[in-house]
Nucleic acid binder design. Structure first.
Length: 306
DNA sequence: CGTGTTTGACCGGCGC
DNA sequence: GCGCCGGTCAAACACG
């Protein structure tokens, strides 16, 4: 991986599913590996794929948001959502494609995230690699391979978050199943799996080797169930925002705390099916957000005020 | 006792 | 073919 060779991987991202697989300079998984696994390059990749003026904007927000802190969560969210489909490989989960609309009381922004391409064949009918030790088949493939084809991952979403804690709460319960040292990084990578037995979503959490304050979280797969509850009094962090994307179709989460500071112009997001957002947390306040929104219907107050 | 974490071993992909 | 590396497994352990 990592054979950039001057090729912009994101130019392969189009609204047409034909880009997915195979063909092109790299497969989708390669692109994602390239894009997400090289954490040290992520920011620069963003910048690389953005107009220079946008890059400056992001950097500016980055600086500004360093002062916007909370004990455990702080600063800017750089998030990337990718419309992602396995094309012929059928990488998409069989759960659902969905969307999440996030709005704040100030009405400053709506964040609409969708995966229009996530609709191909179920991953369940794809062969899983032989499991490691022993014979117990792992539930649902996280990577699938056919003969002569590169392995295909389920849809993945990566986030960069400035945070002091590695594992950010997102309303779902996770079980850690592994930790590995990462080459060229002093920080280990942790592997988590959703504790819901029917859910195959995984996520990886690691710190940027370049900026230890940045946590890189990568989701893989889609939740087949609702979250168990939102932490921190209704505030939902970036993970939850994207975890919500994995919710059943038509289900909408309401995130009163999220304030969209800027969004890449549609000309970029539409052509490449990439959304890069820089979001900030709400004002640090002793009070939890009062906007119950949908949370009032979903999450018991006791949980929200944890 | 149930649930979650730690950690070494194992396996497969991939580059050389 | 070999070695490196990422990802996963599962036994042991910790904790409430």
């Amino acid at each position: 991986m990592g054979d950039k060779a001057g090729v912009d991987p994101l130019t392969e991202f189009t609204s047409d599913s034909s880009w997915a697989l195979p063909g092109g300079p790299d497969s989708v998984s390669d692109t994602f590996n390239y894009f997400f696994d090289r954490e040290s390059a992520i920011l620069s990749e963003f910048e690389w794929n953005l107009q220079p003026d946008h890059t400056e904007e992001i950097e500016r927000f980055d600086q500004l948001d360093r002062t916007d802190t909370r004990p455990d969560l702080a600063g800017t969210f750089f998030s990337v959502s990718e419309s992602f489909a396995g094309g012929g490989g059928g990488a998409a989960s069989s759960c659902v494609s969905g969307s999440v609309t996030s709005s704040n009381p100030g009405g400053s922004a709506n964040v609409l995230i969708s995966n229009p391409l996530m609709s191909s064949s179920s991953s369940e009918d794809l062969p899983e690699k032989s499991t490691g030790s022993g014979g117990k088949p792992s539930e649902i493939p996280s990577k699938v391979k056919k003969k002569g084809q590169k392995r295909i991952r389920q849809p993945r979403f990566a986030f960069m978050t400035k945070s002091e804690v590695d594992h950010l709460e997102d309303g779902y319960r996770w079980r850690k199943y592994g930790q590995k040292a990462v080459k060229n990084s002093p920080f280990p990578r942790s592997y988590y799996r959703c504790t819901n037995s029917k859910c195959t979503v995984k996520k990886r959490v690691e710190r940027s080797s370049e900026d230890s304050t940045i946590v890189i979280t990568t989701y893989e797969g889609q939740h087949c169930h609702h979250s168990v509850g939102f932490p921190r009094g209704g505030f939902i962090n970036h993970e939850a925002a994207f975890a919500g994307q994995l919710a059943p179709s038509g289900f909408q989460f309401h995130y009163p705390g999220i304030q969209l500071r800027r969004q890449i112009p549609p000309s970029i997001t539409q052509s490449k099916q990439v959304v890069v957002e820089s979001r900030t947390l709400p004002e640090p306040s002793p009070q939890f957000p009062t906007d119950d929104g949908l949370l009032g219907d979903i999450v018991p107050p006791g949980i929200r005020n944890r």
